[in-house]
Amino acid sequence: MSVVFTENLDKRFGSVKALNKLDLSLDAGEPIALIGPNGAGKTTLFSVLCGYLRPSSGTVKVLGEQPGSSALIGRVTSMPQDALMDPHFSVGRQLTHYARLQGLSKKAAKLDKDRVLDIVQLSEASTMKPEALSHGMRKRIALAQALLGKPELVLLDEPTAGIDPPNVKIIRDLVSELSDSITFIVSSHNLDELERLCKSVVYLEQGELKQTGSVNAQSDDQDTFLTVRLAANSDDNAFAAMAKAVPGVHSVTRLAQGDFRIHCDHHAVVDEPILARMREEGIKYRQLVRGRSLEDRLYGGAGS
């Protein structure tokens, strides 16, 4: 089933086109990554899907309904970027209020509030005001509100932006755990994280759809590239020279300090010889991956 469908979707702010003739069809299932540079239209797309913004033209359907339609209440939720709760009420009271608006009775709403706070490991925050929470805790509370009821589709806009690694891990683990029953669409600049979390990717640039596909490298890519991350303080030059000398290696590109992309002949077996030579020369590595990283495939690191 298509959870999101857009056709010729335009959204203009004055003379600026935030979304430009966007055609998109996303199916229910595994988490979907929405990526693109700043100003690509990711937040605008989320806002249109949630009904916060009206499209300038074109068609948009969410779970087969118009965004903002009453038929979507409780079925589509979102964790909008930078949205804050009312500072005058406790977190628990607001979550209960939201649950009641989704049609739950007073008692059921309180139970559901407790459930979602437990999921995000913040039961103790129920009586706290939003201002008393750290940034990471606020993000988790925002995720908790998105999980109230039984949503089918959850849109997460920069869910881990600006928060510390423990909070990132909690959010990431939750999305992974819940993705069996909920379709998540996650927008983020953290491509490593998306690569771990999502199976498919939608790439926007200047409001236009540039690419859709699998987050993981395709078999062709896996047969032709290796991505190597060396241990800290390793000798980059020594590794590059060694890797280039391995038969079947076409080129070695240094993407960043300690990060290399190795382009080899199709189906050539180069990983085992490279590992053997690294051992011989005392070069330590942290990660060796078949295929290019998502970042490398999308932005094609120029390297040095």
């Binding site: 949630c50 009904g51 903002g68 009453s70 949205a83």
Partner: peptide, 17 residues
């Protein structure tokens, strides 16, 4: 203030304008 703060976005996921 609910609109400026973004609280309205949480509410509009659950009720019509």
């Amino acid at each position: 203030s609910d609109r400026s703060r973004g609280t309205l976005r949480y509410l509009l996921l659950r009720c019509g304008r």
